[in-house]
């Protein structure tokens, strides 16, 4: 780890001011579970850290319009086990508990979860070219070993995936990210928060360098009756997703009146597909309907060699997750604790 200086401001204004002094080389730190790891690997080399942990941003509270505000510093564990999240947003509860380990979830924050970086092995390996780590050097995953890489939305410069489980549920639920900057605040719809790599893969999201996430707001509608977070991975716990699916349905009898569908492990951002959702709405909750939506999602999917299997796996995972959501079979509730991999 390189040397750096450290500051621990007590309020947001001071944190933003501290950051603005040398905005490119100063980093905010909250849980630290990803940033410190990257600093040990010399992938991140900040000269100054601004510790956010004394800012008043760890509360989880209901807003007047019925939405639920997750403070940016609320830990992943406190969020997953919060009574309002468990009862109103069980999809989010499942997604969070499918990720990392209890120790990491006790430290990792909700804001930090959005900002975690890809686990592409070439991104971590300073000995190999990587356009995300060092723009213009090339992508080692294209033509290299790319089992964990993207099948959707990738570019000729980067095929990395976003590693979060929590963010897949947030994308499906249609959350909003609240952000502060030195001259004000703004709201970013979740789908516009992360970005595709294009020819600027060093940028993971659309925050500008001086901005700070203050909360993540969940809309009132939580799809608490019919949902599933299905995560498929190489071992049944404590591993990143090869494919994950957040499926949420609203049913009137067996007819689908509203639907949400988002995937993890497939793209540079949590991949919500509203066209596939439109194919579900108004249709009967049958395997045929689910297969049509799945086919839509992988339309245009492209394998890179080692990850070709993900296209078929994604299709099957989508059908299975939608079926679980529609039937709310017991399998849904054991996804987290006994992930029965295919």
């Amino acid at each position: 780890m390189n040397s750096f200086t450290y500051a621990r401001p007590d309020d947001i204004t001071e944190a933003l001011r501290e950051k603005s002094i040398q905005v490119e080389t100063t980093k905010f730190i909250a849980g630290g579970t990803n940033l410190l790891d990257l600093m040990k690997e010399n992938v991140e080399r900040p000269t100054r850290l601004i510790d956010l942990n004394r800012l008043p941003l760890s509360q989880i509270e209901e807003l007047p319009d019925g939405s639920l505000r997750l403070g940016a510093l609320a830990t992943n564990a406190d969020t997953a086990y919060h009574p309002e999240v468990q009862s109103r947003y069980p999809l989010l509860n499942q997604a969070i508990l499918a990720g990392a380990s209890p120790q990491l979830r006790n430290m990792a924050t909700d804001g930090g979860n959005l900002l975690q970086r890809t686990r592409c092995y070439y991104f971590y390996d300073l000995a190999t070219p990587c356009n995300k780590r060092e723009p213009g050097t090339g992508c080692s995953a294209i033509g290299g070993y790319n089992r964990i890489h993207a099948i959707l939305g990738a570019s000729a410069e980067c095929i990395a995936t976003h590693p979060s489980d929590m963010c897949v549920a947030l994308a499906a639920l249609g959350a909003t990210v609240q952000v502060s900057h030195p001259t004000g605040e703004r709201s970013i719809p979740f789908e516009d928060f992360h970005r595709l790599p294009g020819n600027t893969p060093h940028l993971d999201n659309n925050l500008t360098p001086g901005e700070l996430i203050t909360s993540i707001d969940l809309p009132a509608k939580g799809f608490e009756k019919n949902f599933s977070y299905l995560k498929l991975r190489d071992r049944s716990s404590y591993a990143f997703a090869l494919i994950s699916v957040a499926a949420a349905l609203e049913l009137d009898g067996d007819r689908i009146t509203d639907a949400r569908l988002a995937l993890g492990g497939v793209a540079h951002k949590p991949w919500r597909d509203q066209e596939a959702e439109a194919l579900l709405i108004g249709q009967p909750a049958t395997s045929d309907t689910f297969r049509r939506a799945a086919a839509k999602v992988v339309e245009g999917a492209q394998g890179q060699g080692s990850n070709d299997f993900k296209i078929e796996l994604a299709k099957r995972a989508i059908v299975r997750a939608l079926k679980q959501a529609a039937e709310m079979s017991e399998e849904v509730n054991v996804n987290v604790f006994q992930n029965s991999n295919p």
């Binding site: 621990r8 942990n53 120790q103």
Partner: peptide, 24 residues
Amino acid sequence: GQCGACTVLIDGKRINSCLTLAVM
């Protein structure tokens, strides 16, 4: 933060002590 050998309890909650700074 991958093996858990460094697990300690902070205010009764388990964490990986390798992924947090003493000053924090």
